[in-house]
């Protein structure tokens, strides 16, 4: 009977959604082990589990590499990929603009300014340098978004004004960074290296902070999928569905900026993930944030794990900047998907 059409459709859709999520979880696990295994020294997969279970760095060379070097960066890429992709989905849906990314609100340039100041002042080159750098990146990032947020608030937090103010702020801060680079030309390579992002300076302290903040932030984003779905039809419809759009905007800006600030502080500016992964996720599960959010998170984490692994393999024994890999792999992938969809 024709009555069941919607049921059939919904059942098929949710079954497909679950299947895709299951595949993505498997992909993530697979990527995680590839990330642990690949690098300057390949650790055979069959050794991996045992070392992980015993977790004793003194046991062997493999164990030392795995526990002290690989594991922190693999966990970091997992967290950061997830955080950037989930933030990207939230902000793109909130602003109804698919060109928005987590850095749009000025986070990246704020962090970069913080780091540049640290480097120019010579604080980064001190023994506690990495911590100072991370702290300044975090501080710069958060300070910038909060400033953008405070200014936008006087415009009633209208999406376009938030984005424009974020954009203006990014330009402003970037120009200050350029000035600093100009003044401290000898340190420019340090700033540049940080700008490309990377996991080589990840420490367990970063991991500990991320392990608390990122899962919590992700949960805070996940519980807003219903409101985000209401935003799909635009602000007016969201409001008439009972969503307090202003509060949602506040909430999402704050949660995503904390997530992204922590990521940026740990591994620098890793471009492309927050912009492109949501698009790739939409190709797999569509627009419903109930599936888009987890799919995007899983793909983001896997993508960054694999990109990091690739960056270590390609130029073995040295490694390529992660930002180069994410863009080089991500951009063609997106164009391919767009072409496939178009035909």
């Amino acid at each position: 009977m024709s009555f069941n059409l919607s049921f059939d459709y919904y059942r098929k859709k949710s079954r497909l959604g679950k299947l895709i999520l299951a595949i993505l979880i498997i992909l993530l696990i697979f990527s995680f082990f590839i990330g642990l295994s690949a690098g300057a020294v390949n650790i055979p997969l069959n050794n991996l589990i045992g070392i992980l279970l015993r977790f004793n760095p003194e046991e062997s060379v493999y164990a030392k590499i795995l526990v002290d070097v690989r594991l922190p960066r693999v966990i970091a890429s997992l967290f950061i990929g997830a955080a950037l992709a989930a933030s990207g989905v939230s902000l793109q849906t909130l602003f109804r603009n698919q060109l928005v990314e987590p850095y749009t609100l000025g986070i990246a340039s704020g962090a970069l300014l913080g780091v540049s100041i640290t480097i120019v002042l010579g604080a980064a080159q001190q023994p506690l340098g990495p911590y100072t750098t991370s702290f300044m990146a975090f501080f710069g990032a958060l300070f910038t978004t909060l400033t953008v947020y405070a200014i936008s608030k006087s415009f009633g937090l209208k999406p376009t004004s938030v984005l424009l103010i974020g954009l203006a702020f990014s330009f402003l801060l970037s120009s200050i960074v350029t000035l600093l680079e100009y003044l401290a030309i000898k340190d420019i390579h340090l700033i540049f290296a940080w700008l490309l992002g990377g996991f080589s300076s990840i420490h367990w302290i970063h991991i500990k902070i991320m392990a608390v903040i990122i899962p919590l932030g992700l949960i805070l984003l996940f519980i807003k999928v219903k409101d985000l779905n209401a935003m799909l039809l635009g602000e007016e419809y969201a409001k008439q569905l009972g969503v307090d759009v202003k509060k949602l905007t506040q909430y999402l800006i704050i949660v995503t900026s904390i997530l992204v600030s922590v990521s940026v502080a740990s591994a620098g500016i890793i471009g492309f993930v927050g912009l492109i992964i949501p698009h790739i996720a939409r190709f797999t599960v569509g627009y419903d944030n109930k599936s888009l959010m987890p799919a995007s998170t899983l793909i983001g984490a896997s993508f960054l794990l694999l990109s990091d692994a690739l960056s270590r393999i390609i130029a073995r024994p040295s490694e390529l900047p992660i930002g180069v890999i994410t863009s080089m792999v991500g951009a063609p992938l997106l164009i391919y998907l767009l072409l496939k969809k178009g035909s």
Binding site: K13, R96, Q98, Y237, R282
Partner: peptide
């Protein structure tokens, strides 16, 4: 201005 949403997704928002 919906980017490629299916009619079902539009309908589903009504149940919010």
């Amino acid at each position: 201005e919906t980017p490629q949403m299916e009619v079902f997704d539009i309908m589903a928002t009504a149940r919010h």
